[in-house]
């Protein structure tokens, strides 16, 4: 057996194939294993994706069929009426503006601050650099607890305010570590030559560090954006008394818990014909909930292909500590 293997190896040892195992004959056990393994992963993948598909087909199918529970696997009687009806839900639009606003503003500031901080902490000549860096990093390992945090935010006047979504997110120590690690891998010669040419710190940061660290900045931007989009807790706790500041997830949470009111709400504040149309299309709580859920998921799904390019790199870099 061993002799055979070695022979077959020496025969074509110049041909370096990627999967050398392939050269060996497949045993029936291998085939069974491959089938079972494949079947398991296929099943798990379906479990992961089916709920999204189920939501989608129920939002684009005829509402009457949905109500009768006829839509399980295949959409029937395609219609976009559910999505068009969302225009009447005022609260939803307010929360969409709030969420989009915090995602765009919060993420941009977070990325800029992380980049700047990540760059500054690589500068050995900074006064008290070690202390200040530790002062930042150590905040990842303790936390004051929910109530003191809430009391602090209210003391700083950051309750019932849009700024409560933005300002606390400026400094993200973990992202600062990621950026710092990345910047340290950029050849120091680039910076030195710019320095000799008379560039100051801000010029070096904007003209050299910022463009060169785009991959890591894209990674933290994506994670930051997803985090902002999915944020729910700060809206729930800090802005509980300002419905106009509820984030989309908070709004969805309320809709999910008070579904029955939703259908009636669709009827109010709408002109008579529209209300009649709404009645005709038999809008029910279930489909509205599904539709709003879809609206909340869709941006994530659209961003997902772009995210995929970056998140693996981000994870690996997270493993390298600063």
């Amino acid at each position: 057996m061993m002799g055979k293997l070695i022979k077959s190896n020496t025969k074509d040892n110049l041909k370096v194939s990627k999967n050398q195992e392939r050269r060996f004959k497949k045993k029936p056990g291998d085939i069974v294993f491959a089938l079972l393994n494949g079947a398991f992963f296929l099943a798990f993948t379906i479990i992961c994706v089916f709920p999204f598909y189920y939501l989608l087909i129920n939002t684009i199918s005829d509402n009457d069929l949905v109500k009768r529970g006829m839509i399980n696997f295949i959409p029937k009687g395609l219609t976009l009426s559910n999505y068009l009806a969302l225009g009447n839900v005022k609260d939803l639009w307010t929360s969409i503006y709030v969420t989009v606003g915090r995602t765009v503003i919060g993420t941009s500031f977070m990325v800029f601050v992380s980049a700047l901080a990540g760059y500054l902490v690589t500068k050995k000549e900074m006064w008290n650099r070690k202390f200040l860096y530790r002062f930042l990093v150590i905040t990842m390992y303790f936390n004051s607890g929910l109530i003191p945090w809430y009391m602090n935010m209210s003391m700083l006047g950051l309750t019932d305010s849009f700024l409560a979504y933005i300002i606390p997110g400026f400094v993200a120590p973990f992202n600062i570590i990621l950026v710092k690690t990345y910047i340290e891998s950029i050849p120091a010669e680039l910076e030195e030559s710019a320095f000799i040419d008379g560039a100051g710190y801000s010029t070096i940061f904007l003209k050299i560090i910022w463009p060169l660290s785009k991959p890591i900045l894209a990674t933290i931007a994506i994670f930051g954006a997803v985090g902002n989009w999915n944020s729910f807790q700060d809206s729930l706790i800090l802005n509980a008394n300002s419905p106009s500041l509820y984030t989309l997830q908070h709004r969805l949470y309320i809709y999910l818990n008070s579904g029955s009111n939703l259908a009636s709400m669709m009827g109010t504040g709408v002109s008579a014909t529209q209300a009649a149309n709404a009645m005709q299309s038999a809008l029910n709580t279930k489909t509205i909930q599904y539709t709003i859920s879809m609206v909340t998921i869709i941006p994530i799904l659209c961003l997902y292909p772009f995210m995929q390019r970056y998140y693996e790199g981000g994870i690996m870099m997270g493993a390298v500590k600063g």
């Binding site: 993948t45 999204f52 859920s293």
Partner: peptide, 22 residues
């Protein structure tokens, strides 16, 4: 498989609950 099984990680718990309801 890898692409599709990662998607649920990026949605919020509220949405997971919406899915649970559905």
């Amino acid at each position: 498989v890898q692409t599709l099984t990662t998607i649920p990680n990026f949605i919020s718990w509220v949405l997971v609950y919406a899915i649970a309801l559905a």
